[in-house]
């Protein structure tokens, strides 16, 4: 598999007008630099249930700050459920409950008295399907997190936050002339970057991404992946993906989830640096999965 730079060279070399010209991209390769220190997340003995069904069993992991951690594994192994549990989104399903602890900046987000609304404002989320709010303009979509929380913000300050977020999501140049148009008028890849801008506008410390590129074409996927490597400078990123090339390209750490057989709970098999998981994993199941010999 070509490395990221080789991959770009191949695609860039298509012609004078490469399809990559259509998207905004970082001018230089992302360097490992931290502009804002993000949070570490410590997960201890986490079990998640849907009613009587035990969906995820006994997860222990430390998600490092200012890095991208990929969660891989076959469908139904509980990685999306686990991701949603990190910002208590699983509670929107009436029967779901979680046991164990998730500690972020010294606070257990499952402790009694913790407001899930506050947790979610610090741990943002981007979903598989791009879903801008259809009644709002591009501008209002980005400002939604701040406006809907009714924080009193001056117009000039809000303008600044919207521009910074859109630049952060590499969307500014594409939409700066149509900030008042509906977010639904954008293409699928642009909509997803708009959703990322919307998520980072509320300044979370952690960004959860549930297969953010699986509904997008390869060019838009590349744009999202490059964006992830930039966003690491400001956020801790956890990304669920079915695309193993994407995990190798975009993540620093990889956790492999597996399920023994259907009806059994999903478990985390191992977590390590991404290179190690894909070249020399500790467990046979991981080796089978990443090499395509699975099942």
């Amino acid at each position: 598999m070509p490395s990221e730079t080789e991959f770009e060279k191949v695609v860039d070399g298509v012609g004078e007008h490469s399809p990559l010209d259509l998207i905004e991209r970082p001018t230089k390769p992302a360097e490992r630099q931290v502009t804002e220190v993000a949070s570490t997340i410590e997960v201890t003995n986490l079990d998640i249930y849907y009613g009587a069904f035990h969906a995820v069993a006994d997860v222990n992991m430390t998600i490092p700050p200012n890095a991208a951690t990929a969660l891989i594994g076959s469908s139904g192994c509980g990685k999306s459920t686990f991701l949603r549990a990190i910002n208590r989104m699983h509670e929107l399903t009436a029967t779901a409950r979680a046991e164990g602890s998730i500690v972020m900046d010294g606070q257990d987000i499952y402790a009694p008295g913790v407001d899930p609304v506050e947790v979610r404002s610090k741990i943002g989320m981007v979903f598989q399907q791009p879903n801008p709010f259809p009644t709002m303009s591009v501008y209002d979509n980005v400002a939604a997190g701040l406006k809907l929380n009714n924080r009193k913000i001056k117009k000039a300050e809000l303008d600044e936050i919207v521009e910074k977020s859109l630049r952060g999501a590499h969307l500014w140049n594409e939409v700066k002339d149509r900030l008042n148009r509906s977010g639904m008028d954008l293409s699928g890849g642009q909509q997803q970057r708009l959703c990322i801008a919307r998520a980072i506008a509320v300044e979370p410390a952690v960004l959860l991404m549930d297969e953010p590129a699986s509904a997008l074409d390869p060019i838009s996927t590349l744009a999202i992946e490059e964006l992830i490597s930039e966003l690491k400078h400001r956020f801790t990123i956890v990304i669920v993906t079915h695309n193993m090339q994407q995990a190798t390209r975009a993540s620093d750490y990889t956790a492999f989830f597996n399920i023994e057989q259907s009806g059994q709970p999903g478990r985390m098999v191992e977590m390590d640096r991404t290179e190690k998981i894909f070249s020399n994993p500790t467990h046979q199941a991981t080796e089978d999965y990443v090499s395509g010999r699975f099942g």
Binding site: V117, V119, R120, F127, N131, T135, G145, V202
Partner: peptide
């Protein structure tokens, strides 16, 4: 998905309903 992405922005439920669900 609209409700979920509003919740993920840290918006309280009543505001999700009045500002996102009802206008839609």
């Amino acid at each position: 998905g609209l409700r979920e992405s509003a919740f993920a922005l840290g918006v309280p439920k009543w505001r999700v309903i009045t500002k996102v669900v009802l206008p839609t």
